[in-house]
Write a protein that binds this DNA or RNA. Structure first.
Length: 493
RNA sequence: GGCGCUAUCGUCUAGGGGUUAGGACGGGUGGUUCUCAGCCAUCAAACCGGGGUUCGAAUCCCCGUAGCGCUACCA
């Protein structure tokens, strides 16, 4: 009988959820859901005790947005709390004292600044910067005496001889010689635990069965395993996930662009797309299928298909995937997202936004061209201005066509009369004009597009005309024609 | 410096003793078409290097090399 799976995501409150952390959280979540287990969220706030509140919000927001609901942790509670390390200080101190009394750890009176100097000196000499066990050589009497005297001390773990190895869930057997590990501080002078120690104490207290984390933790693992053993505990299973790198192959960071999931959200990335994309960073189903909902992922995810190599974050592919999801959304949802985007950026405000029906028509017309909300204005900005100012290049093209002005005028006249003012009659009139002029429809449509939108690219022209309405369409066509005539070289010469 | 992990198209990856080494993003070309997007078709693009083992190695082993990580009283 195997015990129920319990996994955890244990971020430190940095203020935002990094995509690397999000990927780790996702894999933990998937693993828990798949095994009917429990996903625990624990906050590792033993160092920075300021601003935890605010910093926590970003993390929780990111996880919630992705849909990674935790079963135990902040706001959720649970039987193994508290879920903030800053509130569990007593248990670390207790555990550390126990190791001290059992002779598995020792007091270290060394001055941190001094330690730092020694480390740097060793490094400069090309030697491994291990702690030299100065304080381990103190006799029990000396150590006790100095402690009694009130000398400040940290507690160091005495790394046993031998080697440490474990069966990693993603990498197989990993082995370290203990001689390469040094006696790590487990309890600092200020009674706060260090990361490795707190993680061990908590993972045990929270009954964690599988520790799935970034492979930057791989060399912490032998230390933690030794700690478990010293405490008389059974270590959990470990699985180390490959890192996520930036396009230049170094650890993904702000200078590569957006790294926090909320930044992607604010950029119009959909949570479904983000989850799907993240899942494929370091994991693959069969190399063929790539589109998965989070529910499907919980069905098909497996640790033995997790890759061992670091993955470079491909922003283009995320964008593509977002398009896949965005286009599949119902019209009203897309309109909601566009409205929210326009509002939050203040790109469009007031009455224009309030006409929801119109916005929806515009979104419909833009259709597949949009991969994310921010692209709406690229295809629809002209709908929301009094007068278009054509872009220079398209305008120059129009100027170069001597017949453009006349055609625009003719089109204006036709559209002024066309009844009813609907898609098909408008199309018929426009194509009719082209036919009577003896040119292809494009010869009428492109000038109209430039006159109406100021750009060479837009939704279908008849949709644009409909959206603009008869009056504005006719007005813009005529205005463009007049301006063309005024600027035409033939005229001025 | 030490220790550890990793190594298939530009990127994410599938595969794995005998394959035309597959898919996706991105890129090229063609088609659809009023432009763009989309869609369809199509092309280019990879097994880090060297030694073994083997009838046969991209695949297994060793050695290099490279990248990344850790080497804190940070997490």
């Amino acid at each position: 009988m195997t015990s129920p799976v319990r996994v955890r995501f244990a971020p430190s409150p940095t203020g935002y959820l990094h995509v690397g952390g999000a990927r780790t959280a996702l894999f933990n979540y998937l693993y828990a859901r798949q095994h009917g287990g429990t996903f625990v969220l624990r906050i590792e706030d033993t160092d920075q005790d300021r601003n935890v509140e605010a910093a926590l919000r970003g993390i929780l927001e990111g996880l919630s947005w992705l849909g990674l609901r935790w079963d135990e942790g902040p706001e959720a509670g649970g039987p193994h709390g508290p879920y903030f390390q800053s509130e569990r200080l007593k248990s670390y101190a207790e555990a550390a004292r126990r190791l001290l009394h059992e002779g598995k750890a020792y007091r270290c009176f060394c001055d941190p600044a001094d330690l730092k100097n020694r480390r740097e000196a060793a490094l400069a000499r090309g030697e491994p910067p291990k702690y030299d066990r100065t304080c381990f050589r103190l006799t029990k009497q000396e150590s006790d005496a100095r402690a009694a005297k009130g000398d400040a001390y940290a507690i160091r773990f005495l790394i046993p001889e031998g080697e440490t190895s474990w069966e990693d869930e993603v990498r197989g057997t990993v082995t370290f010689q203990n001689s390469t590990l040094d006696d790590l501080v487990i309890l600092r002078t200020d009674q706060h635990p260090t990361y490795n120690f707190a993680a061990v104490v908590d993972d045990d207290a929270m009954r964690i069965t599988h520790v799935l984390r970034g492979d930057d933790h791989i060399s912490n693992t032998p230390r933690q395993i030794q700690l478990y053993r010293a405490l008389g505990l059974t270590p959990p299973r470990f699985g180390h996930l490959p890192m996520i790198l930036g396009p230049d192959g170094t650890r993904l960071s702000k200078r590569h662009g957006a790294v926090s999931v909320t930044a992607f959200r604010d950029d119009g990335i959909l949570p479904q797309a983000m989850v799907n994309f993240l899942a494929l960073l370091g994991w693959a189903y069969d190399g063929e299928r790539e589109i998965f909902t989070i529910e499907e992922l919980t069905q098909v995810f497996s640790l033995d298909r997790v890759s061992k190599n670091p993955a470079i974050f491909n922003y283009e592919k995320l964008d593509w995937m977002n398009g896949e999801y965005f286009r599949a959304l119902p019209l009203s949802t897309r309109a909601d997202l566009v409205a929210a985007y326009l509002e939050s950026t203040g790109a469009l405000k007031g009455p224009a936004l309030r006409d929801r029906a119109f916005l929806e028509r515009a979104v419909e017309a833009v259709g597949d061209r949009m991969k994310r909300p921010r692209q709406f204005l690229e295809y629809a900005a002209y709908l929301y201005v009094e007068r278009v100012e054509p872009e220079p290049e398209p305008w120059a093209e129009l100027l170069a066509k001597p017949s453009a002005a006349a055609r625009l005028k003719k089109l204006a006249s036709l559209l002024e009369e066309v009844q009813p003012f609907e898609h098909d009659p408008i199309e018929k009139a426009t194509r009719g004009l082209a036919a009577s002029e003896g040119v292809k429809a494009g010869e009428v449509i492109m000038p109209a597009r430039i006159a109406l939108t100021g750009k060479k690219v837009s939704p279908g022209i008849f949709d644009v005309i409909l959206l603009l309405g008869r009056e504005r369409t006719v007005e813009r066509l005529r205005h463009a024609a007049e301006r063309l005539e005024a600027e035409s070289p033939a005229r001025t010469s």
